[in-house]
């Protein structure tokens, strides 16, 4: 028999936030956005570094090593975390999809490597593409969604 113990919640955060002062919610959001805008140059630089690392990890043909899979996952997750913050939201979405694909590759899937390559090419296009029309960017992401669905189905059959 194990025991469940209840502990009433005394919310110290609520107490600390009470009282006069502070700022309007609208001002708080504006100030936070302004602070984040200052980080755009290093943020975009970090995204480019992450993309370079991914390109390096997929440079060799053939099955991806566990080490390279981990590197791709780590760097794609960085892009996922930062893309939308620094004006590269579509890259962030593609990177999240790449994380999903890599996470499914713990089993050897025939479509795994082509799916990774397709995502990496898409990331390059989305990064390079100030010229990419919005509709084409959306179509690209829709294609990655389909690819991910295929990989999920393939993994589920294993």
């Amino acid at each position: 028999m194990s025991e469940v113990r209840y502990i009433p919640n005394v919310n110290r955060l609520a107490k600390a936030m009470s009282g006069p002062g502070g700022k309007k919610v609208s001002q708080a959001l504006d100030d936070a956005d302004a602070g984040l805008a200052e980080l755009t140059p290093p943020g975009v630089e970090a995204i480019d570094e992450a993309l370079e690392a991914i390109l390096s990890a997929v440079a060799a043909p053939g099955p991806l090593s566990a080490e390279n899979r981990e590197a791709i996952y780590r760097e794609a997750n960085r892009i996922n975390a930062m893309g939308a913050l620094f004006g590269l939201a579509d890259m962030g979405k593609a990177a999240f999809s790449l994380c999903e694909v890599i996470d499914l590759l713990d089993v050897d899937l025939p479509s795994g490597r082509p799916a990774v390559d397709a995502h990496v090419r898409s990331l390059r296009i989305l990064r390079g593409g100030g010229l990419l029309p919005t509709a084409e960017g959306e179509a690209l992401l829709a294609g990655l969604d389909s690819l991910l669905a295929h990989i999920r189905a393939e993994a589920a059959r294993r």
Partner: peptide
């Protein structure tokens, strides 16, 4: 209104950029 002036906040992130993002958000608040 939101008042975080008296709130003590621990931010934990090992990446410089990640920490800057959190710090800018909460400083803005």
């Amino acid at each position: 209104r939101v008042n975080l002036e008296r709130v003590s906040i621990l931010l934990l992130d090992s990446s410089a950029l990640g920490m800057s993002i959190l710090a800018q958000i909460f400083s803005g608040f």
